[in-house]
Design a protein around this nucleic acid. Structure first.
Length: 135
DNA sequence: GCCAACGTTGGC
DNA sequence: GCCAACGTTGGC
């Protein structure tokens, strides 16, 4: 099982909608590196849900991959894919970007190195640390 | 609103 | 296949 971090600008799609919908398709990725990560996602993988553009930016909770990649329904262009994710759990404490920066074990997260990548892999140890921080 | 980082496009 | 120009993302 793998772990990921997926970003969403709440103006486009926020955690409240995620909770309400229970399940959604994750589309609109137009970046090859992010797309390749989506193609690696397997059913049952867990993703941290990251709110970008907020003050402060933060992780709100966890979602689970329930359907592996398929053609992105929002475009004719067959280069792009979508996956389905379902709501798993909300964090009691939001884990902010600053919290992540402060935490020693998380200094090598992709999030801090390639800030613009919207779908990125997360190590199990990083995932566990963040879940602990959020609980 | 600004700016850095970086991906994409298009001319050559 | 290089590289300049341009657009977008995302933190601050």
């Amino acid at each position: 099982m793998k772990y990921w971090l997926i970003k969403s600008d709440p103006d486009t799609y926020g955690w409240d909608e995620m909770k309400k919908d229970k399940k959604t398709f994750w589309d609109g990725v137009r970046n090859y590196a992010a797309r390749n990560h989506m193609k690696d996602m397997k059913k049952g993988d867990l993703c941290l849900f990251y709110h970008s553009q907020l003050k402060p930016p933060h992780i709100t909770g966890v979602v689970e991959v329930v359907k592996e990649h398929y053609q992105d329904p929002t475009t004719e262009d067959d280069r792009w894919v979508a996956v389905d994710v379902k709501y798993k759990r909300s964090f009691k404490n939001l884990v902010t970007l600053d919290d992540i920066k402060q935490r020693k074990g998380l200094a090598n997260m992709v999030l801090l190195r390639i800030s613009r990548l919207s779908v990125q892999p997360v190590k199990k140890t990083e995932f566990d640390t963040i879940v602990k921080m959020g609980s």
